[in-house]
């Protein structure tokens, strides 16, 4: 049924270049749709999508919901705070109950790595990963890739620097897989306690502990959100030290290319991973990322459910 080689979107690891190309190209067409006075298309009319969010999320859930509605799907939102999961129901039972309601697509976010794959193995629905543990967040990476292509034309031979908590970041992992598949070089930078300890399997990337060196010649800099609980968990001494040594400031930005893009998955800790001058400056494409998020999610849902542009 899928128009892609993949039947579900668990992550970007192992996704072919042609699938990524098709998702991005289709997203560009949906991006154009979003600029029309009437932003809705009938592509998923008659299909039911359930947004199964076991973790708190505002941006991603809203973005998915908007994408589904723009595609004319019937949308059901499921969050743990008002569900029987709170009463002890197992994951499979939750899914089977929802599936009995004849849903077609499940968009899932869960704190556990591999939950999207588990759900796919236990249901007939198409599963889209909206973030599983620290594993992958494929649609965030796809929207990052779309934004870079939109601004720079291509990812091929571009240097992308990702700064921050790489160890706990599903965004970073998905970006590594997606961007390197598309021919970009990826440089990762963060404090020792926030980078993976065993990097061998993390692909063909470059590691740099000094942020000013990491951003040299970068075409795009993605600053990751620093979770405040990292301090409580003794992984970092203070926000201040993090900002002083790993924050993307004007001084850091001056080391990058004049045309470099500043990106962030949001929400931003201003004055921590990004200074306000940088987040709001001319290099920033953060709001473009948000818009592109809807387009990319429309593309993924559309293609996985068998849609083809010009078909």
């Amino acid at each position: 049924m899928s128009s892609l080689e993949i039947k579900h979107l668990f992550g970007l690891h192992g996704v072919s270049k042609s699938d990524l190309r098709q998702i991005l190209d289709t997203a560009k067409q949906f991006r154009a749709v979003l600029d029309r006075p009437v932003k809705k298309v009938p592509s998923l009319r008659g299909m039911t999508v359930v947004n199964l969010f076991f973790e708190n999320s505002t941006r991603t859930r809203t973005s998915f919901e908007l994408a589904e509605k723009r595609l004319s799907a019937d949308v059901v939102n499921f969050t743990t705070s008002n569900s029987s999961v709170q009463k002890g129901e197992t994951l499979v039972d939750t899914l089977r109950n929802i599936e009995s309601m004849k849903i077609d697509i499940v968009v899932v976010r869960h704190k556990g790595t591999g939950v999207p794959k588990f759900l796919a193995e236990h249901s007939n629905a198409i599963v889209v990963n909206a973030g599983d543990g620290a594993h992958e967040h494929p649609t965030q990476a796809l929207l990052d890739m779309l934004t870079i292509e939109e601004k720079l034309g291509t990812l091929e031979n571009k240097k992308i620097t990702i700064v921050g908590d790489i160890r706990h970041s599903r965004v970073a992992r998905s970006n590594i897989w997606g961007m390197t598949t598309m021919g970009a070089s990826v440089t990762l930078c963060g404090p020792n306690t926030l980078i993976p300890r065993n990097k061998e399997l993390l692909g063909n990337v470059t590691w740099e502990s000094n942020v000013e060196r990491a951003v040299q010649d970068a075409d795009a800099i993605i600053a990751l959100r620093l979770q405040k609980e990292r301090m409580d968990d003794a992984l970092l001494p203070s926000m201040r030290e993090y900002r002083n040594f790993f924050g993307v400031t004007d001084k850091v930005l001056s080391q990058a290319k004049d045309s470099t893009l500043i990106m962030h998955p949001g929400p931003i800790n201003r004055g921590v991973e990004l200074d306000s001058d940088v987040a709001d400056g001319t290099h920033s494409v953060i709001l473009d990322q948000v818009t592109n998020g809807v387009a990319v999610r429309m593309s993924v849902l559309f293609l996985l459910s068998g849609g083809r542009f010009n078909a």
Binding site: M231, D232, A234, L235, L236, P237, S238, E241, F245
Partner: peptide, 14 residues
């Protein structure tokens, strides 16, 4: 660590 304690790292880089 902060105060030779067991829960917070000191600002070693600074």
């Amino acid at each position: 660590s902060v105060g030779f304690g067991s829960d917070r790292l000191s600002e070693m880089l600074e």
